[in-house]
């Protein structure tokens, strides 16, 4: 029972981690918390639903096109809405993302209505079943896919950011934009790129989660809150932090649901954030900012 709950927690946790990863990616370079993140992802889920379920395109192409829409939305929001105010009023950027949230929510309602649309799993084969520690663990193939995708994405992003010139340029842009320009780094392009990557991650998360959440305008609300929580736990600008934050949250979340009360899950998660932030304001993995003024 406990073991099964932990496994289930790891699986939900990897979805949280994927959501957190996208938030962190955009934040790392542009320092904007994207409150519209889940709603941008929701649009991609609808695109996927329309292509795959309504028009009958195959899974891979529908997935790819929907993710591409996520990339495009990331670009448009960063370049078109945030950039113009970036140097005039940085604080209003967060408000703009809230505005985008409302617009996308309304738009989805207008176009697709508020019925719950069903989207099938990518993989529907027999679930993996094995016995350990006196219990039975059942892992659906879709869950394995999610874990696999998260795992691959994390490793790729980590290596990319750590060891390539482009990755270093991302980190340089986020730390000191002016100095980055002096190195010859196209910081504007990097800001767009980070939001495009973020958009792709969000879209992927939404499509993978859709079989469980169903597709509707607020489908990503809970995942977005969990993603934020995971990101905050991880320090908000650390890739490994987002992952560990997401997985930890997923496990705690499941254990609370199983042993305390299902209604307390969200409350408990938020209580955890507050507790951790009281002890470590910079998050578990965050470093205290050593930014020069």
């Amino acid at each position: 029972m406990l073991f099964q709950q932990v496994i289930a927690g790891l699986i939900t946790g990897s979805l949280y981690a994927l959501v957190a990863l996208g938030l962190v990616m955009a934040y790392k370079v542009t320092e904007v918390m994207n409150f519209a993140y889940g709603y941008m992802a929701m649009i991609s889920a609808y695109i996927f639903y329309s292509l795959f379920v309504v028009f009958g395109l195959n899974y891979a192409s529908s997935f790819a096109l929907a993710v591409l829409v996520g990339v495009g939305m990331g670009y448009v929001v960063e370049r078109g809405l945030l950039r113009p105010v970036r140097y005039i009023s940085p604080t209003s950027m967060v408000i703009i993302t809230l505005g985008v949230l409302l617009v996308l929510q309304g738009l989805a309602l207008q176009i697709w209505g508020n019925e719950y649309q069903h989207v099938p799993n990518a993989l529907n084969g027999k679930p993996l079943i094995f016995r350990t520690f006196g219990g039975i663990v059942v892992i659906p193939q879709q869950s394995l896919l999610i874990v696999g995708i998260v795992f691959a994405t994390v490793i790729f992003l980590f290596l990319y950011l750590k060891f390539t010139y482009q990755g270093m340029a991302f980190r340089a842009t986020s730390q000191n934009e002016e100095a980055a320009k002096l190195m010859g780094i196209n910081t504007n392009l990097n800001m767009s790129l980070s939001w495009m990557i973020s958009g792709a991650l969000g879209a992927a998360a939404a499509i993978l989660a859709a079989p469980q959440t169903f597709v509707y305008p607020d489908m990503m609300l809970n995942l977005q809150i969990m993603g934020f929580t995971a990101a905050v736990l991880g320090g908000f600008d650390s890739i490994p932090g987002a992952i560990i934050g997401g997985v930890t949250l997923g496990v705690v979340d499941n254990l609370v649901g199983a042993y305390l009360s299902n209604n307390l899950r969200a409350t408990f998660s938020l209580a955890i954030i507050v507790a951790i932030l009281l002890v470590r304001p910079e998050g578990i993995f965050g470093r205290p900012k050593s930014r020069r003024v």
Binding site: A172, Q175, N176, E178, A179, A180, L182, S290, R292
Partner: peptide, 10 residues
């Protein structure tokens, strides 16, 4: 630049 402009977390 004035103030050195290094990337302190790198």
């Amino acid at each position: 630049p004035e103030g050195r402009g290094i990337f302190s977390d790198l």
